[in-house]
Simulated assay, not measured.
Amino acid sequence: MALKTVNIRIDEELKKQAEILFSDFGMNMTTAFTIFAKAVVRERKIPFEITASEPFYNESNMTHLKKSINQLKRGKGTMHNIVEVEDEQSMEED
């Protein structure tokens, strides 16, 4: 089995905390992420529930968004193009 390197960016403090916990489990970061990736592939889903605590995803806003989408589907409303803007940090990294 050929091995590949995967680089990810993670908050420094979160990385330290995760490494300590994984060490308590008797594994390193690579082993932990490999277990995660295998579970995702095997189950064909994220193996735990992901919930949104952001206000954007609250029930009231989601109802409003669904209503707006239905209006657009019926030809009532205006569509706008989305313009992507790079933040300063990602521009500095290039």
Results as ranks from 00 to 15, higher is better:
1 M>N: 07
1 M>S: 12
2 A>S: 13
4 K>H: 07
4 K>A: 07
4 K>Q: 03
5 T>K: 13
5 T>A: 10
6 V>T: 06
6 V>G: 01
6 V>H: 02
6 V>K: 04
7 N>V: 05
8 I>T: 12
9 R>K: 13
10 I>Q: 01
11 D>V: 00
11 D>E: 15
12 E>C: 02
13 E>K: 14
14 L>V: 15
15 K>Q: 11
15 K>E: 11
16 K>M: 00
16 K>W: 00
17 Q>E: 14
19 E>N: 05
20 I>Q: 11
20 I>N: 06
20 I>P: 01
21 L>T: 08
21 L>F: 13
21 L>D: 01
21 L>S: 06
21 L>V: 13
22 F>D: 04
22 F>S: 02
22 F>E: 03
23 S>I: 02
23 S>C: 03
23 S>D: 10
24 D>G: 02
24 D>P: 03
26 G>W: 04
26 G>E: 06
26 G>L: 06
26 G>Q: 03
27 M>F: 01
29 M>Q: 10
30 T>M: 06
31 T>D: 14
33 F>N: 11
33 F>T: 07
33 F>A: 09
34 T>H: 05
34 T>S: 11
35 I>N: 05
35 I>K: 11
35 I>E: 10
36 F>A: 15
36 F>C: 13
36 F>R: 06
36 F>Q: 14
37 A>S: 15
37 A>P: 02
37 A>K: 14
38 K>H: 08
39 A>F: 09
39 A>P: 00
39 A>M: 15
39 A>T: 11
40 V>A: 09
40 V>Q: 07
40 V>I: 15
41 V>M: 06
42 R>S: 13
43 E>P: 05
44 R>N: 15
45 K>A: 15
46 I>Y: 08
47 P>G: 05
47 P>C: 12
47 P>Y: 11
48 F>A: 14
48 F>C: 14
48 F>S: 08
49 E>A: 15
49 E>I: 14
49 E>R: 15
49 E>F: 11
50 I>K: 11
51 T>D: 12
51 T>G: 07
51 T>P: 01
51 T>R: 15
52 A>M: 09
52 A>F: 13
54 E>I: 08
54 E>S: 13
54 E>H: 11
55 P>G: 09
55 P>I: 04
55 P>H: 06
56 F>K: 12
56 F>T: 04
57 Y>T: 12
57 Y>I: 00
58 N>R: 12
58 N>W: 00
59 E>D: 07
60 S>I: 09
60 S>V: 10
61 N>Q: 07
61 N>H: 07
62 M>L: 13
62 M>S: 04
62 M>W: 01
62 M>G: 00
63 T>P: 02
65 L>Y: 08
67 K>L: 03
67 K>P: 01
67 K>W: 02
68 S>C: 00
70 N>E: 12
71 Q>E: 09
71 Q>D: 10
71 Q>K: 09
72 L>S: 05
72 L>Q: 01
74 R>F: 04
75 G>M: 05
75 G>R: 05
75 G>P: 02
75 G>I: 05
75 G>K: 04
76 K>T: 07
77 G>F: 01
77 G>E: 01
78 T>W: 01
78 T>G: 03
79 M>K: 12
79 M>A: 10
79 M>L: 10
83 V>A: 09
84 E>I: 14
84 E>H: 08
85 V>C: 10
87 D>F: 06
87 D>Y: 05
87 D>T: 07
88 E>L: 09
88 E>A: 13
89 Q>M: 04
91 M>Q: 14
92 E>R: 14
92 E>L: 10
93 E>H: 08
93 E>M: 12
94 D>N: 04
